[in-house]
Amino acid sequence: MTPSLAAPARRAGNWVRDWVRSTPGTHIWLLIIGITSLVIASASEGLEQFLLHRTSSNIHELNEHPLPSLLISGFWIEQPGSFLLYAVMFELVHANVERWMGSWRWLLTVGAAHVAATLASQELVLLAIEGHQLPRSMTHVVDIGVSYGLAAAAGVLTYRLPPPWRYGYLVGLLAFFGVPLATGATFTDFGHAIALTMGLACWPLTPAARVGPGDVATGDDDGDGAGAPPPSGRRQE
Rank of each mutant, 00 (worst) to 15 (best):
E45L: 02
H132D: 00
G178S: 00
I33M: 04
V97F: 07
A113H: 06
R17P: 12
T206K: 08
L92K: 15
V16M: 08
S103K: 09
Q49L: 04
D215N: 13
T218H: 01
G172H: 14
A7S: 09
D222E: 12
P163E: 14
G199I: 01
Y159W: 06
C202E: 06
L173K: 10
Y169P: 14
H114T: 13
A7I: 05
I33A: 12
T26L: 11
G219Q: 07
V110K: 07
T26N: 03
T118C: 12
E98V: 04
V115C: 08
R160H: 06
E123W: 12
L70S: 02
A9T: 04
G184N: 01
F187K: 04
L67M: 05
S103Q: 08
G227P: 06
A87W: 06
G34Y: 09
P163V: 10
T36D: 11
V156W: 02
R136W: 01
G223F: 11
A95M: 07
V97G: 05
F176A: 13
L126G: 00
D143G: 04
E61L: 02
P207R: 01
Y167N: 12
A153I: 00
L51P: 04
L173D: 04
I129K: 00
Y159S: 01
A193P: 07
L134C: 05
D221C: 06
T23L: 03
A151V: 10
I77H: 03
E123A: 13
Y148A: 13
R54N: 15
V216L: 15
A217G: 10
T139Q: 13
H192V: 02
Q133G: 05
M89L: 14
N14I: 01
L196F: 01
W203S: 03
A175I: 15
A43L: 08
Y148T: 10
R21C: 06
W76A: 02
G34V: 10
L71D: 04
T109N: 15
G111I: 12
F190P: 13
D220V: 09
L205E: 14
Y167R: 14
F75A: 09
L30Q: 14
A208Y: 04
V39N: 14
A113S: 15
G212E: 14
T23H: 04
T218M: 09
A87H: 07
A175V: 09
